[in-house]
Every structure is written in C-alpha cells, then in structure tokens.
Nucleic acid binder design. Structure first.
Lengths: 168, 168
DNA sequence: TTGGAATGTCAACAACGCTGACATAAAGTC
DNA sequence: GACTTTATGTCAGCGTTGTTGACATTCCAA
C-alpha cells in the first residue's frame, strides 16, 4: 500500500494510504486525551465526571432544552443521563422545570452555580484549544474542522450544524 | 468577544474567538463519536470494549512491546490494563512471552486470531477515516493533523511521534 | 373514555477507569 | 549471600457511565 494512488482526475492521493489513515487514527486517539485532560482534572476534584461536563455544556448552549433533546445530542440512554442530571439538580447546578404546554417534559437550565462550573470547564478546554489553534494557524484550523465534520455520523452532524449557528 | 482580534503582525485572528473555539470543541466531541462508532459495534458483538481495541491496536503496532510500555501509551493503570489483557490472553488473541534478557518483562504479541480481530477493527475505522479524508481533501487533512498534534499532552505527543515513524 | 405513544424515574447490571495491599521473581547493590 | 528495587501480576473494592427492564405520568387519538 505504499504506491502512489491516482484517479482519472490525476490528483495525488498519497494522503489516503493506509499509513496516512493510521496516523490520523492515532492522532485522534492521542489528541482526544489532551482534549479532555484539563476538564477531567477539574471535574474529579469536584466528584463529577465527563458525563456531567457534557450535560452542563449542552444545557448552557441550549437553555430550556428538554431531557429528550439532550438525549439525542449526547447519544446515551435516558437512564444514564438521568443519573447525571439527578446529581446536578441535587447539587443545585441545574434546575428542572415542568413544561407548561406538555407537562411530561422537563426543561433544563443552569443555575448561577451551574453557570460558574460551566465557565470554569469551558475556559480550561478553550485554553487548550486556543493554544492548538494558534500554533497550527487558521488554514490548519479550517482543515481540522472540515475533517471532523466529515467524520461525524449523520445524526451528530445535524446536531453540530444546528449548534454552529447558535452563538455562545 | 465578537470583535476582531489583531496582533502587531497584523494577521487576522478571528479564528481564535471564543465562538470559533467552541465550534472546535463541539466538533471534537461529535467527531470522536463517529470515530469510535464502527469499532464499538464490532466489539460489542464479541463481548469486548474500547479498551480491548486499544490494546490490540498498539500491540499490533509494536509487536513484542512490554506491558509497561503499553501502560504509558494507553495512560491507564496496570490493574485496568491487566483485566483487559487477561481476557485477551484467555481468549487466545494475545500471547504473552516472558522476556529473555529480563525475565520479569512480558512481551506481547497478537496471535493469528488477534491479528484477524485487529484487521477487522482497523479496516472499519480506516474506512470511516478514509471517507472523511477524501471528502475534506489533502490540505484539510494536513491541517487536521497539525491541530491534533498541537492538542496533545507532551507525553502523548512523544508516543505519537515515535509511532509516526513506524510504518504499519 | 380508553389505549397507545411519549416522557421521564427507579433498580439492577456490566465495562472500565481508579486506589491500596500484597505476592512473586529477577535485577542490581552492598 | 542478604538486601533493595523494579516489573509484573492478583485480589478486593469503589466510582463513573454505559446498558436493559419495569413503571408512573401525561398527552393524544380512536
């Protein structure tokens, strides 16, 4: 698989060799560790985990979102999310309000304390991302986002696209 | 944070706004789900998890590696890795050979069956990566790798750099 | 009004991180 | 040879976060 791959168009497809793909896979693995390292440290000090971070992040992004909507974004079962939400509500970081039109629904909001945790976590994660972006430069960042978006499953790409348009 | 940020050099640093960083963070989250989705499906059918995939991947990449080396690559505790290795050895996917020079060490190898599982998993993951790479194009892929490498912790970047030079 | 769909909660279980304590065996040191 | 350190592994136990199953509530449509 080390030969030059080419297509009718004549473009060089060396970047699609198994070896290049393997490097991409390992880069994703190692980079994701860095991506989560800083929030993980903060969370473990407070007795929370990554699932709490994700819930807090997306509630902050879409205040008033329902449990069901959060489920489809996070891609976990409602039972798994429920456990996390319960602890966040008990600790006063998240508020759950019964829906007005549909009383089955619970609308989720961050409290002031929840907002503070969200800022602490997102600041740490943004600092890491900013360092990487600055080091790599704007063209690299554009490519980074293109590849990541192409790697998503359809459902996730839809969620990503919707959130992209929501300024934070 | 919506203003244009600029530096003495005069370059436009709009790509470092909080909003752009937030998009990068969400892209990482959603893309990583896609990245692991296909192997996860295969693994769950066989009663394994992601930890087994990682072990099999890196043993394949560095046949004869020691448990200790694997630990530092994977960044988990020996107890956690041991649980995974034990099941892989019991199931005949991994072979553990006592070191010749240093008999305390165990050198790890994939058996034929282990190699077959590795190929099945890496083929699925490469297919996804290939689709994303092809869709995004070579310049985007170069940027993707630059940003990911800049996002890694120092230890992980060292492991990544060493593996990059090893053809697979 | 009654039955099914949607929504969310509670209980129990599995995978896989973690720490701590301890056993074994080999290497290097005194 | 005795001692210490290093490498590996086991056992026990715990926490987070996935999973499925059972169930209560609410809404809507037949």
């Amino acid at each position: 698989m080390a030969e030059v791959t080419s297509r009718p168009g004549g473009e060089n497809l060396l970047f699609l060799t198994d070896d290049q793909l393997r490097k991409g896979i390992e880069a994703m693995f190692f980079a994701y560790r860095g991506f989560t390292a800083d929030p993980d440290r903060i969370l473990s000090e407070k007795g929370y985990g990554r699932a709490h971070h994700r819930a807090v992040h997306f509630i902050n992004r879409s205040p008033g979102t329902t449990v069901n909507n959060l489920l489809s974004i996070l891609g976990v079962t409602k039972q798994s999310l429920n456990r996390v939400l319960r602890s966040l509500i008990e600790d006063g970081l998240v508020e759950s309000r019964v829906g007005k039109r549909d009383k089955r629904e619970r609308h989720l909001f961050l409290t002031d304390a929840g907002g503070a945790l969200e800022r602490e976590l997102s600041t740490a994660q943004r600092d890491r991302m900013r360092g990487a972006f600055r080091q790599a430069g704007p063209e690299a960042v554009a490519g980074f986002k293109q590849v990541l978006e192409a790697m998503m499953d359809g459902d996730m790409r839809r969620h990503y696209a919707r959130l992209k348009e929501t300024n934070g």
